[in-house]
């Protein structure tokens, strides 16, 4: 009986562990190995026979004076700026919406439901609609901005050139903010009502309560939320892939798409793997730094 008890927790975890190993951890290790190989299309059939190439793939990836390194660096900066904007706006909209829907009023339930639609829609269905809206001649965006509001003299392109970055950010925010909203709404429900009642007794107005009670109480939720949003957005593949098709414009060349192209279009899987490993290292570093600072601040507050 006791022996069975001892093994039971491990038995319960076994399926999850086995699958995570098979689908995530083993491939990750294989990917790391591949990044040290000269893995071009000639070796795909049996990748283990590809010759070792030491750090060559890494050297090529970070040689910022050559085209491959340059375009990777460009993609990295584009992704950083994209992530900062998309996460920032999504968080802002999510927070504002959650706060405004905290007190009940007529139509609150309906709005709450409507706001969750972008999150519920399958990514490809939603993003394909946006790409229709961004079409130069037949899209809603130009119809609205040029034909109805006269903001531009000529219809701009949205899915190629400089504007593609703006288009990408708009779609990402539209798709992401409801998740922030959902999480923060759940977080708000955990704030005791007595806090507000006590504050109201002391004569604190709505705006003051927001600053003194609501936002500080949401800090632990925000700590996790911002990290999750950051990781999702930085790794986003689906949005640009559906919005632009297989070739993303240079101005909106997110890192996942860039690596995908480097691997599957040019069939240079070694270099693609090296870039993926670099990406992972970067994400680990950012996450570690983030958790270090936010946890310390939390401890200091407590």
């Amino acid at each position: 009986m006791t022996r069975r008890r001892l093994g039971l927790p491990y038995l319960l975890l076994l399926p999850a562990l086995a699958l995570e190993l098979l689908i995530h951890l083993v491939p990750m290790v294989v990917g790391m190995v591949m990044s040290f190989k000269q893995l071009t299309q000639f070796y795909i059939r049996d990748w283990s026979t590809a010759p070792w190439s030491g750090l060559d793939n890494y050297r090529v990836s970070v040689d910022f004076s050559a085209p491959i390194g340059q375009s990777l660096l460009n993609s990295f900066w584009v992704t950083c700026l994209f992530t900062a904007l998309a996460v920032g706006f999504s968080w802002l909209l999510g927070t504002a919406a959650a706060v405004f829907l905290q007190e009940s009023f007529r139509g609150r339930g309906l709005l709450r439901t409507l706001f969750l639609i972008p999150y519920a829609l399958p990514v490809y269905a939603a993003v394909i609609t946006w790409s229709f809206m961004f079409q130069r001649d037949t899209g809603l965006v130009n119809h609205l901005l040029v034909d109805q509001l006269y903001l531009f003299d000529e219809k701009p392109f949205w899915l190629i050139g400089d504007n593609s970055f703006t288009a990408l950010v708009v779609v990402a925010v539209w798709k992401t903010w409801p998740f922030a909203f959902l999480t923060l709404m759940a977080g708000l429900q955990n704030i005791p009502r007595e806090l507000y009642e006590a504050a109201a007794m002391d004569g604190a107005g709505v705006w003051q309560q927001l600053r003194k009670i609501t936002l500080p109480s949401l800090r632990p939720v925000n700590q996790v939320l911002v990290l999750v949003l950051f990781l999702w957005t930085f790794n986003d593949f689906n949005t640009p892939y559906v919005l632009f098709g297989k070739s993303a414009p240079e101005q909106a060349d997110l890192i996942s798409i860039h690596i995908y192209q480097s691997s599957f279009v040019t069939w240079n899987f070694g270099a693609g793997s090296a870039m993926s490993v670099l990406l992972l290292l970067f994400l680990l570093l950012v996450t570690a730094i983030y958790l270090f600072f936010t946890s310390r601040r939390r401890d200091a507050d407590a």
Binding site: I23, G31, N235, Y260, S263, G272, S273, L283, T287
Partner: peptide, 15 residues
């Protein structure tokens, strides 16, 4: 959860 999908897409495919 934080691994970029692109990192294990190709190895997984080969596995």
């Amino acid at each position: 959860q934080m691994f970029p999908g692109i990192l294990f897409l190709l190895p997984l495919f080969l596995i």
